[in-house]
Design a protein around this nucleic acid. Structure first.
Lengths: 221, 221
DNA sequence: CGAAAACTGCGAACGCCGTTTGCAGTTTAG
DNA sequence: CTAAACTGCAAACGGCGTTCGCAGTTTTCG
């Protein structure tokens, strides 16, 4: 029913050879997303870049969501090779998180694609498997590890989003006198540029420690 | 140029009295979003619910984004009255965070609306002001407090998103033998339902402590 | 008072989107 | 050699946000 793109073969065995391929389409789509955001990735635009019509893409993909899933998994492949998993598990996860943040910086559209319910592909699963390997020495339940990884993904995407977002819109036409704390905060000059990298490490570490430290690994694992 | 809905008057002073109002439109839009998600809020659908045409809404709103901003600020108003700000600041922020999570549960579309660059309205600013008040006793720089609040918003939205999201899609057509850690994790029976509330509190506390504890409040504030 | 200006609602239209469909041509299976 | 299964492609469908023009209503001002 709800088949993922990886469960369907790339082509049949009867007709003429296809002029394009899934990989080629995904390449073009990623290039457009890198340049103009995920909103620039329309079936018509991708098809035009490939010199064909929008409807022709449906010979290779079952929907636009399908394409986005393929794009996400392709991008996840860029996380290879995975950082060293030996040593302290927290350091290992921090290396993973930093590498993931770099990926989000390289492909800001990934944040939007992952915010939507997505089908996991082999690259994403491989990355997930690596994370579980890093967390192997941690004496926590499996469910807790899953949640820790999910939270790490979320925190990384939060940083990526805040980096690519502009300053908050101005407060035109709003009476500010009712917000004394806000006025006080905004009128004080910004002390200095906060260490973004430190904040990232601190936050990721805090979340991982918080989620995984609540109790020992009972049950099965 | 990029005027917010709050900087534009609700109506002029010359023509006939309007048949509708911004509040009425926002009410209808929120009702539709609660029922069918943010995707169900189309200009045509909202207009139909009000017994008029899609184009007529542009007498009250300058765009659909405008409507979403108004919806978000209306929802933020539901956070009033704000929880007690006295006592330990971490407890105070936890109360704020829990109340915010309840709001997200009541209006799941809020997560999607806030993920997009939004214009802050008076209700949102009032809530922000309250947060700054709770954080007043914390000896940290203003920028750090802003980042702490932003991170708290992000973490709360992560929890809200994970609650409303279904289980991850199956792995049809993917060779699993390459992911030994994943297999091991999936074949172990789930120990027991994890304490979601505890996880929420722990995570929010971890993030706030992590972001705000890195150094004393130097500089001006 | 009367004319001009500024507003109102509204239906039609524009350009974009994802997707479906039908048709003509090509390759393979039996 | 026929029939099935595939290919590319252009047209069309329904939906979207938004714009535009028109007719009617209310206010302002000479």
């Amino acid at each position: 029913m709800t088949s993922t793109p990886w469960s369907r073969p790339a082509r049949g065995a009867r007709g003429p050879a296809p002029s394009h391929s899934r990989d080629e389409i995904v390449d073009a789509a990623i290039a457009m997303a890198d340049a103009g955001g995920i909103g620039a990735v329309s079936m018509r635009a991708v098809a035009t870049a490939l010199g064909t019509g929008a409807g022709s893409l449906y010979r290779y993909l079952s929907s636009r969501d399908d394409l986005l899933d393929l794009m996400a998994d392709r991008a996840a492949g860029e996380l290879r090779p995975y950082p060293d998993a030996s040593g302290d598990w927290l350091d290992g996860m921090l290396r993973v998180a930093r590498r993931q943040l770099e990926l989000y910086r390289r492909h800001p559209w990934l944040v939007d694609v992952l915010a939507r319910p997505a089908a996991l592909g082999p690259q994403s699963l491989g990355w997930f498997d690596h994370c579980l390997g890093v967390l192997r020495p941690v004496p926590a339940a499996t469910a807790a590890k899953f949640e820790a990884i999910a939270m790490m993904i979320g925190v990384v995407s939060l940083f990526a989003r805040s980096e690519s977002a502009g300053p908050p819109a101005g407060f035109d036409g709003i009476d500010m006198t009712a917000f004394p704390n806000l006025i006080a905060a905004l009128t004080t000059p910004p002390a200095r540029a906060p260490g973004r990298r430190d904040l990232f490490d601190v936050t990721v570490s805090s979340v991982l420690r918080g989620v995984l430290a609540q109790n020992g690994g009972t049950a099965t694992d």
